[in-house]
Computed example of a mutant assay.
Amino acid sequence: MQTIGIKAPPADTGQHTGRGARHDLVPLLAGAAVAVGGVGAALALVDLDSPLRGPFTLFFLLAAPGAAIGAALRALTPWGRAVVSVSGAMAVNLLVAQGMLALHVWSVRGGVVAVAALSSLILLLTLVRRPRGRPARRWTT
């Protein structure tokens, strides 16, 4: 009788590991997004005149709360999580702007700091509430 099993390929042989190119690019793209967002926040906080300041800061203002909300909603399907994350990011930005305008304390630096603080708070609360060792339950409806 023959035993059928899956053997891992030997190390450094150049053999295909079964992972697609998409899986290899995800960490690279995530790192690039963090770098672009960080540069955008830094350019806004330093008040440096650069043609990249506007687009990079806008990317930070959408990506930081969107990533935090997306991390909180791991149980949703990918498309549902994307829609809710983008909508939530826009809502966070609008609420920060409205609150700062109502209090007469509007500034670009203050807005970036407030959005970063709220995004960090959402992400921190998500990490604190997530039970260890138990994967998130999937909602398919």
Rank of each mutant, 00 (worst) to 15 (best):
G80L: 03
V96L: 05
A72F: 00
R74D: 14
V84G: 05
A97R: 07
I69A: 10
A91H: 05
T77N: 13
G88L: 05
A82E: 12
P78A: 09
V92A: 03
A97W: 05
A72Y: 01
I69G: 10
A72P: 04
G99C: 00
W79G: 14
N93Q: 13
R74C: 07
V83T: 12
A71Q: 11
L95P: 06
G80N: 12
Q98W: 14
V96P: 05
S85H: 01
V86G: 11
V84Y: 10
A91I: 11
S85T: 05
A68E: 15
A82M: 10
A75H: 14
W79T: 12
A72N: 01
A97C: 02
A68Y: 09
N93A: 15
V84R: 02
G88I: 03
R74M: 11
L73P: 02
A91R: 00
A91W: 03
G88T: 05
A71I: 00
W79F: 13
N93W: 06
L73V: 00
A97E: 15
V86C: 11
V84K: 02
V83H: 03
G80W: 04
G70K: 04
A72L: 02
L73G: 02
L73I: 01
R81E: 15
A82W: 01
G99A: 03
L73W: 01
G70E: 12
A97D: 13
A82V: 08
R81C: 11
R81H: 12
T77A: 15
A91E: 10
Q98E: 15
I69S: 09
G88K: 04
A71G: 15
G99S: 09
R74K: 07
A91M: 13
V96F: 02
L94Q: 12
A71P: 07
T77I: 02
T77Q: 13
G88W: 04
L94W: 07
L95Y: 03
A97Y: 09
L76Q: 14
L94F: 05
N93V: 12
